[in-house]
């Protein structure tokens, strides 16, 4: 079985509580799961202000600022894509068939802020 572990938090608190994780700790944990051979992909996301939502209705694509807001909607899947810029990412998002009935929230992946060190092959970010 494959599982997706989704990280939810109040953005205001994610980095400010005494028990809030530091990026080094996040990276270390990702590496430990990686070395156990069980990590398929894991990334931190940029803050919610960078979010853009794409919907396709009656063949027309609408793009709006912000995350999806319909509380009736539940997470149904994900695509992690490599795109030149937001426009290309939005185009790919608009092509996702579920965009016709739901919403696709597009958010950049965030680089963890850890001290630079020599990169090794297969190093998870």
């Amino acid at each position: 079985m494959k599982y997706l572990c989704l990280v939810y938090s109040d953005e205001e608190l994610l980095h400010s509580l005494p028990e809030s994780p530091r990026d080094e700790e996040c990276l270390a944990y990702a590496e430990s799961v990686q070395s156990s051979g069980r990590l398929i992909a894991g990334e931190a996301l940029a803050p919610v202000q960078t979010a853009t939502t794409v919907r396709v209705r009656t063949g027309k694509t609408t793009v709006t600022d912000g995350p999806f807001a319909e509380t009736k909607e539940q997470l149904a899947g994900f695509y992690m894509v490599e795109a030149r810029d937001l426009n290309e990412a939005l185009n790919i998002a608009a092509g996702i068939p579920a965009a016709r009935v739901g919403s696709i929230e597009v958010r950049p992946v965030r680089e963890l802020d850890v001290p630079a060190r020599p990169a090794a092959a297969g190093d998870p970010r």
Binding site: A46, P47, Q49, T50, A51, T52, D65, A83, R84, D85, L86, N87, A89, R107, P108
Partner: peptide, 9 residues
């Protein structure tokens, strides 16, 4: 900030 951080070209 959004233009920069979200990669609006």
């Amino acid at each position: 900030a959004k233009i920069r951080d979200a990669g609006i070209p």
